[in-house]
Amino acid sequence: MDIFFQQLFNGLTIGSVYSLVALGLTLVYGILHIPNFAHGALYMMGGYITLTMMQTLGLYYWLAIFVSIVVVGLIGVLMERLVFHHLRHAPPIHDKIAAIGMLLFLEAFAHRVWGADYLEMATPHGQVVSVFGITFTLQRLIIIVAAVLVMFTLYLFLKKTYMGMTVIAMSQNRAGANLVGVNTNKVAMLTFFISGALAAIAASLSSPINLVFPGMGHLVILKAFVIIIIGGMGSIPGAIVGGYILGFTESLGATYISSDYKDIIAFILLVLILTIRPNGLFAKGGQS
């Protein structure tokens, strides 16, 4: 039973990270209808920048995260401005290829600058805590709490501020939003900034319990795609719930099925879903 609760707790930790990454991905998808394959590279950059800030500038963990948020957010904005903006009217295959191009570039960049090694990120919150027979490091608890805080802040921003509401408006109807005077360019940039920021937060939070390396974004982004397909492409609650579901499934699957194949769970889930519902779990009816 203890193992079960321990795994549940681990699932919550992993799920928090997945949710944050999937949120950024789904926001961009909702607004620009781009499956941003380069999102995993943003995640990876987030990890490296936080690490660099801590190691070379000696910044405190949370300050380093802040820098990382800003930098990765801006990389996201650059992506939108320099690339996706020019591909708005291109055939659908083009933006995916462009995203892959950026992914390859950023990974090679990280490889070049930081090397191929797996780096550790120290956390000021390494203490071991033991509650109700579950043992964990404080960092794990922080991941969970911070993720909830970030989601809550995002929720307030989207629901209560004018800027946030324009984002929602545009995700519901781009042409309509344009008509009622929403500056779609600004919203697109803002969305990419948020998306990058979320990726940076997720990476910085999880790096102390994982590791930092050029390919760290691969699995995470793939799983984030699985999540937003489960949760409905473009759906914000769907991304959050989907993230936690996948987190739980994986950590329980690793214990009770096989830890070698735990990474496959997500993909098999996705393949199953798309096999049964080719347009995603929450696609509206109509076209066959």
Partner: peptide, 28 residues
């Protein structure tokens, strides 16, 4: 037969996952 029921980005993501499953199987 299954993948082609999906379109556009769903197809790309689906095949991405199929590729990954093949990789993981070979690896494991």
């Amino acid at each position: 037969m299954i993948a082609l029921r999906t379109r556009e980005h769903f197809f790309a993501i689906y095949t991405l996952c199929v590729g990954y499953i093949i990789y993981l199987i070979i690896y494991n």
